[in-house]
Write a protein that binds this DNA or RNA. Sequence first.
DNA 1: CAGTTGTTTTGATTGATTCAAAACAATCTG
DNA 2: CAGATTGTTTTGAATCAATCAAAACAACTG
Lengths: 160, 160
Amino acid sequence: MPLTDACHDDGGLRLAAADAGLLADSIRSAGLKVTAPRLAVLRALTDRPHSNADALFGAVHSDLPGTSLQAVYGVLASFGTAGLVRKIEPAGSPALFERRVGDNHHHIVCTRCSVVHDVDCAVGHAPCLTPADALGFDVRAAEVIYWGLCAQCQADTSAP
Amino acid sequence: MPLTDACHDDGGLRLAAADAGLLADSIRSAGLKVTAPRLAVLRALTDRPHSNADALFGAVHSDLPGTSLQAVYGVLASFGTAGLVRKIEPAGSPALFERRVGDNHHHIVCTRCSVVHDVDCAVGHAPCLTPADALGFDVRAAEVIYWGLCAQCQADTSAP
DNA sequence: CAGTTGTTTTGATTGATTCAAAACAATCTG
DNA sequence: CAGATTGTTTTGAATCAATCAAAACAACTG
């Protein structure tokens, strides 16, 4: 019940068109000042979810050449605490960021090419998010990462 | 079926007494040379599962003062590829290591004190390890980390 | 439009981990 | 059991991701 992990749909945040006004609105309504680096990071993240700080810096830097990598880290940190982005940290990878928040979806990562996709929290499987024996813990969240070969890498590997 | 994740018991590896002969045997039967640093790391890991490289270095260093941190990293890497230890990488923490391998158990981490406990893979919940929609991936493993407050930290927090 | 507060830049630093070459030691072979 | 072989450890340096701190700057408030 106190789980962050309820399997419901996201709160209506639609990530399609990265209209500048909408981006500004979501920043403002998270209680943050609207600035060029923030708009640029949020736009880049809309276009390419599951990017790391460096990739976002690359994307942002081409629109907005004055921006520093540290600014990107700062923007991501403020977005994170404001609940505007979610940070995921798959083993062996730098942190990745995505705008899809609020639902607790999971991730599937290719062990060969490292591509990441979202995986919905399967309705009917929600009990999984409660451990067999919580050992007295007050469980607040569950994080699931699936590892495997993506379709493309399966094709590449089976025909060498 | 190809999942690494079947919920079965471990293969008879009992982690109780860290008898030197048994430790040596498991190293040897993994196809590795038996050396003092390897025995020391394996013993330390038996005594304190979920340790990071630095903590293991500390433990090893007191028995075997000549040992370097890099040796510990080397030992852990060879143990990892030999299937003798498992590496877990909870977000925001350095990598942790444990001897309990082969079963795919999960972990529960305290968000306040960072203590880690094992959580068995719940029989009857195994379907959870198959994503709702694998998106064409050949899924090989599923990793689950629960986050919450341990019993101790709940007590400390509720009575400040 | 000026003040306040929060943001970004600049520059340096940390922490975890990895790399590479040389010194060394465990096992294999005779 | 000594010597050869192969793999391991040491030593020392480097990398990558991320964070810290102070000064310069810009967005919202009134």
